[in-house]
Simulated scan of single mutants.
Amino acid sequence: MELLPISTPHCRIERDEHVLVVTMNRPEARNALSADMLVGLASAWAYASEERDVRVAVLTGAAGTFCSGADLKAMGTPSSDPEVRARALEMTDFHWKGLLRQDLPTKPVISAVEGYAVAGGTELLVGTDLRIVAESATLGLFEAKRALFPMGGSAVRLPRQIPYCHAMDLLLTGRAVTAAEALSMGLVNRVVPDGQALAAARELAAAVAASGPLAVQAILRTYRDTLGMPEPEALRVSDELGWPVIGSEDAKEGTLAFREKRPPVYRGH
């Protein structure tokens, strides 16, 4: 994999052809969020959106931990790296962008979770599109138990993603949740043996990357753009985004490859 120069001291960003791998890299603090990490995350999501050949991103954490949440002191302390400080000044709302609260990447993001993914770690997971979790992982939104508020957006997003009563259970009690329980709630896609989350997420990323990129991005955008719309209005948006995909060169290639019984070669056209 190629290490990209947009990496920061607390966020390693690597590219493997169509897949971007983003690693929260502050293991001495269980990958708690810092300014260095959030600038790196925001940079990664912007890069994923801007780079045509990036089709999917994987978010994980270093040293067997996903993310233990916010480190308020570190988040409020500017980076010691002059280049990262400059990027932070140029990047409006890098905290919210890094947390996947706003300006979401136009490509899908897959979370690969080992160990703790709590508070801000679970908020990051809720911002991703597909979720692979190791069997001994711990999830949870601890904010209310500490008289805090989940500012990453989970109070809005979680009840839209899983049944209301499960969402309120997590949000109002602030209790820890096992991987198995998260799977039973529909919060995650798959539970895998410990140490296998990243490998499983990479397999899933390869499957996404093998799909037509125009189709994948249009499906993701349709969902986001139609949230809260009545069905007739939402279907009009779906048609506006879907018909250009149907008429694309990639769609022709997909049909031809099926007829010729070979893997398609999609170019995003």
Rank of each mutant, 00 (worst) to 15 (best):
Q196W: 10
A180I: 05
A167P: 01
L171T: 03
V188L: 07
G174C: 06
S184V: 08
M168L: 15
N189G: 13
A167V: 05
M168G: 07
A201E: 02
L183R: 09
R202A: 08
Q196P: 03
I162A: 02
L171F: 05
V192E: 01
G174L: 09
Y164I: 06
P159S: 10
N189Y: 11
A205Y: 03
G174E: 05
A176K: 11
A207K: 13
V188W: 02
A205L: 06
P163T: 00
A207Q: 14
E181V: 09
T173V: 09
E203W: 10
I162E: 01
A197M: 07
A209G: 08
L198V: 14
V192I: 08
P163C: 02
D169W: 11
T178M: 02
G174N: 08
A179T: 03
S211G: 14
Y164T: 06
V191R: 00
A201I: 04
Q196H: 13
D194Y: 06
A167H: 01
L187D: 01
V188Y: 03
R190D: 08
L170E: 00
T178L: 00
A210D: 14
N189D: 15
V192K: 02
T173L: 06
E203H: 11
V192Y: 02
D169F: 12
E181C: 07
I162R: 04
R160N: 15
N189I: 05
R175Q: 13
A205R: 04
V188K: 00
L171Q: 03
V177N: 01
A209E: 05
R160W: 12
L183H: 07
A179Y: 00
D169R: 12
A182E: 03
A210Q: 10
Q196E: 15
A199N: 09
A210L: 08
Q196A: 13
A197Q: 04
L183G: 01
L204W: 08
P163M: 04
V192M: 06
I162Q: 03
A210N: 10
R190F: 10
L204F: 08
Q196Y: 11
P193Y: 13
I162K: 04
A209Y: 00
R160P: 10
P159I: 10
N189W: 11
A199C: 06
V208T: 00
L171E: 04
M168E: 13
A180T: 09
G186P: 08
E181N: 09
L172K: 14
A205C: 09
A176E: 15
E203P: 01
A179M: 00
E181I: 05
A206L: 14
R160D: 14
G195Y: 09
G186L: 04
D169G: 07
S184H: 10
G186A: 06
A197V: 05
E203A: 12
V208L: 02
A182Y: 01
V177T: 12
L198I: 11
A176W: 02
A179H: 02
L183Q: 11
P193K: 13
M168V: 13
S211D: 15
